[in-house]
Amino acid sequence: MDYTGTEIGRHPRAAARLRPLIAEIGQRSGEFPVLLANHLPMVLEAMGRLGASPERLDEYAVHYNTAHAVPFPPPPVAPLTEANWRTAIGHRERETDLRDFFADVVWRIGGVEAIRRYLPELFPGVAASATHGLMRLAYAVLRRDDTEIGISLGYWAATYLAFPRPDRVGAPTNSAAELVLAMPAEPSFRGITVESTLLWKWIEHMGSVPAFRGLVGRLQPADDLLDQVRAASLAVYAATMTFEALHAVTGSHWLRLVAPHLDQPQALVAHWWEVVMALYVRIGMPDLPDAATLEAWRNLPLPSDAEIAAAAVASDDEHDHSLTFSAFEEFKLTGDRLYKVVAARRVGLIA
């Protein structure tokens, strides 16, 4: 399907190649050494929807698996059942067992029902593999791929990462921005260092910072919460173009894909925004741009949609594919031209 409001179309042979290719590479682990997220099943879909040829998809799959030495999942430890699968949550060595468990669940009740029934228990651990469990599930939903839904739920469960919940939650708020705007005034958020460069290690560390733990649990689900975080995420990314803020923009898209299959999707959004707040500290808690600045950026001259998509497809950086695809998808929803601006910047077509 072509994008509404854009000039991008799929290669006529791409769709036929994608499903068997993703089925093949989807058998590999959700992470590669050392504990980095395997983006390949997701970005192949993004590339296909951005116009990649079957030949480019095959070429990129070989490149990615070779460059990152993406392994197969670890050997099984022991079968999991409805009674004991929760004991394996957060244990990467149980990835195969959890994938097998959820494969059986999906076979019995279907992928959509599996999401509705089981994902709420995993909401607090949405930081799993630096939120890439959510990414993999979102793309599985996008493809209506029950096999990938089962794999995604197992991956999310195996890499589950939650902030410790405080004994006493601070004053509740329905405003995502209110929490963020108060953060720069907290002295203990300055000068934090974490030895690892992994995003999820930073997120994990923030859960041990007392002032940050005071923010956990305060954001309450609200009907407009996803709209709030979508707008804030785009503003922060446009202002900083940082790797961390990129994940806030793409994550907003992933949440939107999963939300229709949840009874309380805004509860997941609230947990996810806590992860974004942790990453906001990592990028130095910059001021949000004002409305006039955002409007000026929206009106910058742009290359064509096809040029932006082609630059993303030609890139070997999985974050170029991910950001560009999500930006065009969010443009379809909102009509906000700033999404095209950040995509063009990301792939180096404008300054």
Rank of each mutant, 00 (worst) to 15 (best):
W107S: 03
E121Q: 07
E204N: 05
A312P: 10
D223T: 14
V194I: 14
P166H: 06
G284K: 13
P286S: 01
W200N: 06
R99T: 12
A140Y: 13
T66M: 08
W107N: 02
I89T: 09
W273K: 09
G133T: 12
A238W: 09
S315A: 11
M1P: 13
L215H: 12
G217I: 10
R282I: 09
T240W: 01
L333P: 00
H321N: 00
A157K: 06
E318K: 02
Y280T: 04
L161Q: 03
D263N: 13
V258K: 04
V112I: 13
V180K: 09
T4F: 12
A171N: 13
S326T: 15
H205R: 12
E329F: 05
E55M: 09
R117D: 14
R337Q: 09
A14T: 14
Q228W: 12
A158G: 12
Y139D: 03
G26F: 06
L44D: 03
A351F: 03
P33S: 12
V169M: 10
P41W: 04
A292D: 04
G110F: 05
D223N: 14
E307S: 08
R346Q: 12
E82S: 11
L21F: 08
Y118C: 02
A162T: 05
L57R: 05
F163L: 05
L98R: 00
L18S: 07
A278M: 07
E244F: 08
Y64E: 06
Y3N: 06
R168I: 11
G133D: 10
L333M: 09
E148S: 15
H91T: 05
P172Y: 13
L98N: 01
S315K: 08
A52N: 10
D317W: 15
G150W: 01
F123S: 00
E178K: 13
E295W: 02
A235V: 04
E113Y: 03
G170L: 06
A306I: 03
M1G: 14
A83W: 05
A239N: 03
S208T: 15
V169Y: 09
P76E: 02
L279W: 08
I109V: 13
K332R: 15
F212D: 07
L215D: 05
N38H: 03
V112H: 10
T81I: 04
A182T: 04
V236G: 05
R230T: 15
W254Q: 11
T131I: 15
M277V: 12
G214C: 02
D263E: 15
A128T: 06
V106H: 00
L219F: 08
A69G: 11
P120R: 09
G125S: 03
V269P: 15
G5C: 14
E148G: 10
G51Y: 02
A311M: 06
D305I: 02
A239C: 00
L257V: 13
L80M: 01
R144C: 08
R19Y: 11
R346K: 15
A306Y: 02
